[in-house]
Computed example of a mutant assay.
Amino acid sequence: MLSDLAVSLASGIVLAAGGGAVAALTRSCAGASIPTWLFVATAAMAFPAAFLLTRRLTRPGPQVFILISAFAQTRWLAAFLDSAVRSLGHHDMDLVVKLPRHDYSGQSQVRELNAIRKKRRSFVGGLIVCSRPETIRRELADTGTMTGLPIVFVDIRPFPQVQDYPPNTVFVGCDADEIGERAAQWVGHELREAGKNRPSILVVAGEAQVGRHLVFAAKIRDMVSPSRLDINLQGHFSRESARDIVDQHLRYLLRRGESLDTIYCTNDEMALGAVDAVKELEARGYQHAGLFILGVDGTPDALATIKSGATPFRATIVQDPRRIADAAVDLLLRLRAGEHVPTQTLVATTVYPSQ
């Protein structure tokens, strides 16, 4: 806002100066036999010059694109986007946001990638958050190769091996496998503290970030030998989908006279959906004593819910969006400068609250 005000003031000063010069010339030459064409010529030169100078002052800074799929499904991406805008702003760069119309549609993402290729001269680099990169890996690789722009992939690794990355492209984010392992450690500790040696566990996940649930399942089986370990991949990282899944699962267990000890959701939106389902059933008289919920991301809503202590939502694995955004922008700038940087940069997670 302050930069816009400065530009407006500069524009006004330039145009006023041009107009003032013409007026001064008119006054100084009043009564003199100066040809009319001279005044016209002076104005004709002064105002275009002022206009061109104003255009130069208002020209936007270098632009970086960001392509984000599944933006509507997670609040964490909103926090990351805000942090990216702030970090780029420190380098006088503008961010152009590209959101595919259909969040999980590979074709929608491909259309945006094609549009970016056509306008590649408008950008100095880009950031890409792709929800299901395995479906469009060739197009992602082609974008990196054909544009020649430095590109940083964020949050979800686009390629399985380091050697698969095209030149001038890198990844930064948290390790899905580490998240799964940290989640298992937290759940195992809590279950042992509660004396539950054969617990019933529900995992609500999506089709992306598979390490979060696969590694969790492998580790928790070794730690506590669960009597039930159900994994539902239809959560779509959505609060509403998770609420329906948890509601149906709890009702199923109630009919069988069984209980549920833990719900692990692979993002906070789904964890909040699990909270909604539990609260709705409790309002109807069903009790779930000892049940606790674990999420992933560390979104403000999740942290506030945990801090309140009024729900079974007990903890979350935190991915710091500011640290990831700063790392992404730093890598982008270094790539642009021709520096050699690591192909994959992993940002460590933390648990809130700490055990």
Rank of each mutant, 00 (worst) to 15 (best):
R182Y: 01
G89V: 11
R192A: 09
I324K: 05
G12T: 06
I324V: 10
Q161D: 13
L303K: 15
L9F: 02
V14R: 05
D244E: 15
H213I: 02
Y104M: 10
P62V: 02
G148V: 02
R138Q: 11
G126H: 14
G188H: 03
R56D: 08
T58D: 10
A217V: 00
A217G: 02
V351C: 07
S105L: 13
G188N: 01
D4I: 14
I245S: 07
L9V: 12
Q287P: 00
G257L: 14
L214H: 04
V97G: 07
I324Q: 08
L303V: 15
E240I: 08
A30K: 15
Q185T: 06
S122Y: 07
E282C: 04
G125S: 10
Q234I: 01
A205D: 03
S200N: 10
R157K: 14
G12Y: 00
D320N: 11
L335Q: 15
T316G: 05
K196I: 06
S259T: 14
E178N: 09
F80Y: 12
T311M: 03
S259N: 14
H213D: 11
G298K: 05
L294Y: 04
G309C: 11
R323H: 05
L272N: 08
R212K: 14
G195I: 05
T316M: 04
G188R: 01
K279I: 06
R334T: 02
L294K: 00
F39P: 04
H213N: 09
A218P: 00
D301F: 07
I293M: 02
L99D: 09
S131I: 06
G148P: 02
E181K: 12
Q63T: 14
V154Q: 10
C174D: 11
Y264H: 08
T266R: 00
L95M: 12
D230Y: 07
A208P: 02
V187G: 00
L272V: 03
A337H: 11
R239F: 05
P300G: 04
L2I: 13
A328K: 07
S11R: 15
R75G: 14
V278N: 01
A46I: 10
D244L: 15
Q234A: 13
P342S: 08
L346E: 11
D301W: 06
E134W: 15
P62Q: 13
A141R: 14
I68L: 12
G126T: 12
R59F: 10
S308T: 06
H213E: 13
T147M: 05
P167A: 09
M93S: 09
G211W: 00
F39N: 08
P226E: 00
F159V: 03
V318L: 06
E193M: 06
G89M: 04
G31C: 06
A184W: 00
D301Q: 14
G180M: 09
C174S: 15
D4E: 06
D330V: 04
D175T: 03
G173W: 08
T349F: 07
D142F: 00
V162P: 02
P160C: 01
I220T: 01
H102A: 10
T135G: 01
D320I: 10
L281C: 02
W76M: 05
V154D: 09
L202C: 07
